[in-house]
């Protein structure tokens, strides 16, 4: 693996559509559940323990064997009851597929079927990581961390939170991201049904409400 390649993949400035997604934070702010830094901390912890674990696991599994992308994609459908979140995940998958295929060869996603379906973001992330020569744990780290950066920066933009404080929260969760990535890599070859499926009811509910708004700043 190349550490620099991992940094390129995990960089928030990678043009892969992430800047327009708040990871559910815009809905949480609007509902009054997130008002300040302490709420953002709780939000990030909950998101990492749920969406972060699932995303990391599926990214690791797709990186270990990109040919499983269809099964993994179906597994994410079954783990994502919210149509709005499925749509957001596929939109980000499509954007990352565009970026990733320009940066590295990603044979698993060259197929017309993958082009047509635009797999869920964690699947694309794993396949792109594989194409970039990274290992499943790298993909899982990028995935787990990636579930946090969107809401953290959205907190800065939506609530005017201190950007240093928001990034301090990210730094504080680094150890948790590492542990999640270790676990995800260890289980990367597991059958899809036994991979983690941690749900976050308020992320589902918030995403569905958000999708009905006429005025919103973020895509999800």
């Amino acid at each position: 693996m190349s550490l620099t390649t991992l940094l390129v993949l995990a960089d928030g400035r990678l043009p892969a559509g992430g800047h327009a997604h708040s990871g559910g934070l815009e809905a949480a702010v609007s509902s009054g559940r997130v008002r300040g830094m302490a709420d953002l901390d709780g939000f990030l912890q909950g998101r990492l323990a749920t969406a972060g674990v699932v995303t990391a696991s599926f990214a690791a599994a797709a990186c270990a064997d990109p040919q499983r992308w269809r099964d993994l994609d179906a597994g994410l459908d079954a783990r994502t009851p919210s149509p709005a979140l499925r749509k957001a995940s596929r939109a980000q998958g499509r954007a990352l597929m565009r970026a990733g295929r320009i940066l590295w060869p990603v044979p698993a996603l060259d197929r017309p079927a993958a082009q047509r379906i635009a797999p869920h973001h964690p699947v694309v992330l794993g396949a792109v990581a594989h194409g970039a020569g990274l290992v499943p744990r790298d993909a899982a780290v990028a995935a787990a961390y990636g579930t946090l950066t969107g809401p953290a920066t959205a907190g800065v933009r939506l609530l005017g939170l201190d950007p240093f404080g928001a990034h301090a929260l990210l730094a504080g969760l680094a150890g948790a991201c590492d542990r999640i990535a270790d676990e995800a890599a260890a289980r990367a070859g597991d059958p899809v049904d036994t991979l983690p499926a941690a749900g976050a009811p308020l992320l589902d509910i918030g995403a569905e409400q958000h999708a009905t708004w006429e005025v919103r700043l973020f895509a999800s």
Partner: peptide
């Protein structure tokens, strides 16, 4: 900087 949503 990140034109992907517009390209889509």
């Amino acid at each position: 900087d990140d034109i992907s949503a517009n390209l889509d």
